[in-house]
Design a binder for these strands. Sequence first.
DNA 1: TGACAATGACTGACTAGTCAGTCATAATTT
DNA 2: AAATTATGACTGACTAGTCAGTCATTGTCA
Lengths: 233, 233
Amino acid sequence: MSKTPAKPAARPRRDPPQGRPQDRKPLGAASPVSNRAARAAERRTAIVAAALDEFIARGFAAARLDDVARRAGVAKGTIYLHFKDKEALFEELVRTAIVPLIARLAPPEQPVGSVRAALERFAFTFIQEVATTRRGDLVRLIVAEGPRFPAIADFYYREVVSRGLAVMRGLIETGIARGEIRLPALKDYPQIVVAPAMIAVIWKSLFERHAPLDAMAMLRVHLDLIFGERSAS
Amino acid sequence: MSKTPAKPAARPRRDPPQGRPQDRKPLGAASPVSNRAARAAERRTAIVAAALDEFIARGFAAARLDDVARRAGVAKGTIYLHFKDKEALFEELVRTAIVPLIARLAPPEQPVGSVRAALERFAFTFIQEVATTRRGDLVRLIVAEGPRFPAIADFYYREVVSRGLAVMRGLIETGIARGEIRLPALKDYPQIVVAPAMIAVIWKSLFERHAPLDAMAMLRVHLDLIFGERSAS
DNA sequence: TGACAATGACTGACTAGTCAGTCATAATTT
DNA sequence: AAATTATGACTGACTAGTCAGTCATTGTCA
């Protein structure tokens, strides 16, 4: 429709000419990386990163694999060397992106200082690493597409939600045992402790424009609610 | 692929034969309704209802207008007599579906009994009318598609979020003035009061299968948190 | 070490299918 | 009969997924 008839003739190779990845360089653009497997892994990573952006921006159905490929500086066919189909890419993507989230979400079960301090630290980390970043959009993406991808909802529940809530419940129990937390019933609904943090994530991506939200301040007030009036700054 | 070659020949008309609207009857299937405008309005309503189901089930991009038409017991062209395009249908749909939500969300600013009782009633209504119903899925749909449809996010913020939060803030202030609520800072973040209810909505549609949630019990514990230990049953 | 062969990662034009939106035709109402 | 409203076959734009072909890299042998 535009280029050569059907014969690729002399197709230029490697980075320099090529399709120019104007959107995102294929990661180790500078590193030489002679090893083949390493290059392949690099491309895979680039594809996943590009797909994350596209899926977040457009949602699963509307995301175009052509765009993912362009963004990753890769031909469309390459995507299919690494992933069975669009759906597999999506699921893998969520898995990949969530792993680092898990690490963040698992603070020491037995806090060093007060439980309140531990939760405050947790809240701070959460705001910094999730609510403010693209990871937050990922959470929204899961909420959005979850019902259509049970596998993803399952995975997310198993790996993030149930674990996170278990840790939270542990912290609450410690808080109750130490007399920091008044309401024993709270341990039955750790969701209550996490709820405002989730709201912050959603708020950021939907309403920040209309009414900016000081998430950390909100979470502090919420902690005041749980632990009683102010304690540390 | 199944019917007549390409010539409509003798195309049967009206309800009886037709595509049989097995999914959803066009509303007043029995009522005579001679008036034309009324019939049109009825169809419009049927289209909106069908579209709500489809958009909730598949999301905006993946929803097919053919399916919407079939579900509404209407030909595809008819949709275009009422809506400019798919997007207009979607936006109108959200508007239409949200109006009744607003009514629900506006309890008396000055509660008759205690503020706690008012909030408990509110929570109960919310669980009954939103978290448990398709309206809850609508909320999820808005969260999902909001970023791609600023007009919808705007509308939702204006009509539901800001109003709802204003009412909530009013209640909180009353609670503070009456000494029911200890923490004055709570009035700055009415989101905190609503957060668990939102979580309940999301939980229901994502994780109910894995771990059923007694939303009302959770909201009661949350109220205990706000008002201090138990008060009324 | 240098030449040559084998490999398989990568490419992108192409196919097959989908679906939003159109419009000539038909039904219904006035 | 004219005007209005509804229909659904059709079109054209678009995209997931394929595959024959290319060539940088790796392995092998003299």
